[in-house]
Amino acid sequence: MRLIADLFLVVGAAFTLFGAIGLIRMPDVYNRIQAGTKAVTLGSLCLLIGIALLYPAWWSKLLVIGVLILITNPLGSSTIARALLKAGVKPWSKASVSQAGEADR
């Protein structure tokens, strides 16, 4: 049981790390939002599952936290993305930057 829980914890932490790497490597803010949101959401859920396996008595509160993350995280990201588009931040595209690497706005 402990081994399965630990595997969930490692996988969750790894996905969270991938999300953070994406946050650093992605060329513009929209792609960063994508990397950040997705990876961190699944990463957190895996971590919660891992903890739930370690402490089965906590399942109900962990479930509430999981659902909270699942609902609020994509909503928050969409809200930021929408605000950016309305504020006139242009998405990066390969054609216009000729893949020279880091380019913002």
Partner: peptide, 21 residues
């Protein structure tokens, strides 16, 4: 959701950063 994460991990970790946004 799982597919999305594997896909994103592949993109983030590959050196050429395959994007066509």
């Amino acid at each position: 959701l799982v597919q999305a994460n594997l896909d994103m991990a592949r993109r983030v970790l590959s050196p050429s950063l395959p994007l066509q946004p």
